[in-house]
């Protein structure tokens, strides 16, 4: 009896971990993150000094927790999914990101 219970618990733990990992793939946070990072990188690539654009934190695609520009890459954290790789941009100008309440402002200087 005890053996069966232990087996069930262990199997349950394995499947719980598996389902959590699978759900993060299925809810497409990774794709949303990729789209946002690439969109922002392309906007930065095409921008000239004194231009600025902003990214709303709450969108129908989810909640954006963080937009960061570091080491020539754009990092976006969405729905609790942190960005590990980011996406590279190219710009001859300084790129700044400011947290402005309900949006992130990206400024080219």
């Amino acid at each position: 009896m005890n053996k069966t219970i232990i087996n069930l618990i262990l199997t349950g733990i394995v499947f719980a971990v598996f389902m959590i990992a699978l759900s993060s793939s299925m809810n497409s946070r990774g794709v949303k993150q990729q789209v946002l990072e690439k969109e922002i990188a392309l906007l930065v690539d095409a921008s000239v000094p004194e231009m600025e654009f902003w990214v709303e934190k709450k969108t129908f695609n989810g909640v954006i927790q963080k937009v960061e520009v570091r080491d020539g890459k754009v990092f976006v954290a969405i729905d609790g999914l942190p960005s590990l790789k980011g996406y590279p941009y190219f710009s001859r100008y300084n790129v700044l990101v400011e947290d402005d309440g309900d949006k992130f402002k990206v400024k080219i200087r």
Partner: peptide
């Protein structure tokens, strides 16, 4: 059994 279950789970994942 645990190894077998883990293997199946990770294969599906």
């Amino acid at each position: 059994r645990l190894v077998l279950v883990s293997f199946v789970a990770f294969a599906v994942f």
